[in-house]
Computed example of a mutant assay.
Amino acid sequence: MSTRKLAELPGPDVAARFGPDTIIVQPTGAVEHHGPHLPLVTDFLLADHIGGAAVERAADEGLDVWQLPTLAFTKSDEHSWAPGTVWLDADTMFDTVVQIGRAVALMGAGTLVFANGHGGNTALLQVALREIRRRTGLKTFLMPTLARVPGPDGEDADERGLGIHGGAAETSMILHLRPDLVDLARADRWVPDHIADFERIAFNGGPVSFGWLSNDFGTPGVVGDASRASAEYGKLLWDVSLDQAVASLHEIARFDPAVPR
């Protein structure tokens, strides 16, 4: 049987095949508002496609790695104001992933990796890594599915460090994966320039973070410049993101926090 999808295995095969070197990948996406030009399923597609392709390639390269079904409904309450968003509260999401960790440990696997396609899950999953580790002994990891890649017109040419949701990168990636779901005629530049010049308060990497909802910025729930998107940029993002995910799985496979004897 060539499948790397865990849920397609017969139950007895799990017990027979899995051991301490087995890596289980749990993709985490979302079903949430992505503006007028992208589908609600955007983050699910990123997690499912990149996570699944990374598992397949890593398995072909010799890793004992398997994929759980992608989580569609996750912590998306920053978009709860927008019709179509389906979200779990923090407690429910946290309990869900911890219980998944318990199940993975009972399968006999040694490692659980969350391949995350939705930024709103990141902080919660980071806390869950330690909780699952403490409760089960599993090695636990979190990796992104979408890489940060300079666009064809240069690094962050028009998004000013604010291209975090529905902007050039996500729109380009969905143009590559599912162009039938993208309406570029409805894409625009939705960058909240009025917050871009703060030196310490930032979305990514700044020393001061802040709580936000996606309708805080005077945009239609998008933060970024979707008008810069292209299928060519999407293909570049796909190639780099997949390479990054596979390389991460190889490093995860040989990682041991203990001091070598």
Rank of each mutant, 00 (worst) to 15 (best):
R254M: 10
M107D: 07
A59M: 10
E78S: 06
P39E: 12
Q67M: 13
E159Y: 09
V259D: 11
P69A: 09
F198L: 09
V182N: 08
P179N: 05
A15T: 12
P20F: 11
G11L: 13
L249G: 01
L237V: 01
A128L: 02
H79E: 13
W238M: 03
P207L: 09
G218W: 08
S172K: 06
E251P: 00
R178W: 02
P152I: 06
V97W: 15
G234I: 04
I24H: 07
D48C: 05
P36E: 03
W66I: 01
T28V: 15
V25W: 10
A103S: 15
M93H: 08
L213Q: 13
P39C: 11
D77L: 14
D183L: 04
G163D: 11
H250L: 02
A115M: 07
I132D: 01
H118D: 12
V55M: 08
R130A: 13
A103E: 13
D13R: 15
I23N: 05
V127P: 05
H79F: 07
I50F: 11
N116Y: 09
Y233R: 10
P207C: 09
A90F: 09
K235A: 15
N215K: 11
N215T: 03
G211S: 13
L71P: 00
E159L: 02
V98M: 01
S76D: 14
T3R: 02
G101L: 01
E251C: 03
H79N: 14
D239S: 00
Q126M: 12
I23H: 04
